[in-house]
């Protein structure tokens, strides 16, 4: 039944895959619990998963953990949607018209290589420590990456599709909307999903440096009092949000691109 799991490049059922993945995760957690309880390592370095779970509960009931999670999620999505709304049209134009591509590529390539942390001081000078700084930093970390990915997706649309459409009477605008956008759809959505993940990386950074709310802030404040279970609980929440978002986007991808 599950023999495909052990064959080189073998096939297996989705159910077997899920069971295996969950099983390994559960085994890891159990091993962690056992090691933590054995007492070789001090609990402030490695608290047991059960204690992290306890912290998760108390933080939810007394510290408004859900609210912090909501604030962080909103920041990520606002910055991400802003970046995507700008990157998709600009990236498409970069690959559609040489004048746009040639004029923007050097600048974008330069900014893309600037590490976001290096720009935090500048961002604070410009925007203070309010929401703008956080949104700006997240946008900075994703827009310049995404715009080049989108340009690449557009460039990879087979030229045959474009030429077929022209010989069927489509105008350039229609080729863009009816052919190029449709052809690049699957890779575009994949790239959006990956970029959204990067957004979370920069979020924690931004919230550690300049925030009084959000999961990064929660983690950083817990660290100050060496409340390791709370630090870990914050990390777990970020992981869970990431996992759920990713699975939802994948499910959406499968629904949208059924023809693949």
């Amino acid at each position: 039944m599950a023999s495909g799991l052990f064959t080189f490049r073998g096939k297996s059922s989705a159910r077997a895959d899920i069971m295996l993945g969950l099983g390994v995760a559960a085994a890891l957690i159990l091993a962690w619990e056992a090691v933590a309880r054995a007492g070789f390592i001090q609990p402030q370095f490695l608290p047991a998963p059960s204690r992290v779970l306890g912290a998760l509960w108390s933080m939810t009931t007394t510290q408004g953990l859900l609210w912090h999670a909501f604030v962080s999620t909103m920041r990520v999505w606002v910055a991400f949607l802003l970046a995507a709304a700008m990157a998709i049209p600009i990236g498409i134009m970069m690959s559609s018209y040489r004048v746009v591509g040639a004029s923007l590529e050097p600048t974008i390539d330069f900014i893309r290589y600037l590490p976001v942390p290096a720009l935090i001081p500048l961002s604070i000078i410009w925007f203070g420590v309010g929401e703008e700084t956080k949104i700006f930093l997240l946008w900075l970390g994703t827009f310049f990456q995404l715009v080049l990915l989108v340009a690449d997706d557009m460039r990879r649309v087979p030229h045959e599709y474009v030429e077929i459409a022209f010989t069927l009477g489509a105008k350039p605008r229609q080729v863009l909307t009816d052919v190029a956008l449709r052809a690049m759809g699957p890779t575009l959505v994949d790239n959006l999903r990956i970029t959204l993940g990067w957004c979370w990386t920069y979020l924690v950074l931004a919230e550690i440096v300049a925030a009084d709310s959000g999961l990064g802030f929660v983690i950083w404040s817990a660290r100050r009092y060496v409340k390791t279970p709370e630090v870990m609980a914050g990390v777990v929440v970020i992981g869970l949000i990431g996992l759920v978002t990713d699975q939802l986007l994948r499910a959406w991808h499968r629904r949208m691109f059924k023809y693949l």
Binding site: P158, E160, Y161, E163, I164, F166, T167, R182, A183, F257
Partner: peptide, 18 residues
């Protein structure tokens, strides 16, 4: 310029997969 009076048929990528 191309228009619908002359249609192309290629060897690959000949039909739109979506």
């Amino acid at each position: 310029a191309p228009d619908r009076r002359r249609g192309m048929v290629f060897q690959s990528y000949s039909s739109f997969p979506w």
